[in-house]
Amino acid sequence: MTTIAATASAAAGPTGQASPKRRRRRTWPVVLLLLGPAALLIVVFILAPAVYGAYLSLTNTQLTGFAARDPQFVGVDNYTYLLSNSEFLASLGRTGEFVLYSAIIGQTVLGMTAAVLLARPWVRGKGLVGAAILMPMVVPEVVASLAWASVLSNNSAGTLNRLTGLFGADATDWLQVVPLASVVVVNIWRGIAFAMIMFQAALEDVPGELIEAARMDGATALQIFRFVTLPLIRGPVFLYLLLTTISTIGAFGLVYFLTQGGPGGRTTISAIYIYERALQFSQIGIGSAASMILLALVLVLGLVYVRLAKVEV
């Protein structure tokens, strides 16, 4: 920004009297250079597909069969179908549970706990603990899924079954018996690192003297956190909640690799429902409509968060 201002100022000549219109004309190549590639990519890979998806959602487009040759405009039929379809509504409900337990409660609470603990001067081995928490974020999604598939494996060689076996328990097929809880745990494990990093950065901005003053006034550690620290980091917390909610609603790979939406559809969250409809069952019109509904929900949630936090996005 400084460079642009300096360039524009220099271009105005010794009098510095260049009109805003002239200045804009002179700086547009730089603006185009800096913003153009990103804007083009956004238009080509985000906006255009989204608009095309919205169009598809109003048609009965299929990927296979005779219907694929001649898609028809069906208005809001796909939306009507989905909003009265128990499977889709159930997938939305499961997505809500998944987001609530894994992102909003799990990742946020544990990420905050880790950040607060690592901010304490008396904690030893911070580097080691921090690295351990960061590791899940570094591991590729497929590798993480395979690792957890091994941990939760149904036979006695599964890591968790080995642990429970020490207490005499029989081998359990965790992904069959408690599938949603299992994928929630895995998603928490994977997301803590990002939460911790964001909250650590926010905590560093909390003035130490405020904490000190509260302490001198006799506030307990919990009271200091609740009434001093938390209000001061409200913005970053809500920003994190916004980001993690969006990314968790769109989560696909982790759940798909572990359970493929099963057993009995018990982990068929919306992203998996959309994948099944659009790509496995070739109903791209219905899949697109489901995506649009999900997009609308995310936008509403985003607005709520932004309002609550008064975060500038």
Partner: peptide
């Protein structure tokens, strides 16, 4: 200024290509 425009053009062309 011409140089900046040229760079912008090349950059845009590269992205499109």
């Amino acid at each position: 200024m011409k140089r900046i425009r040229m760079i912008a053009l090349v950059a845009a062309g590269t992205v499109v290509a």
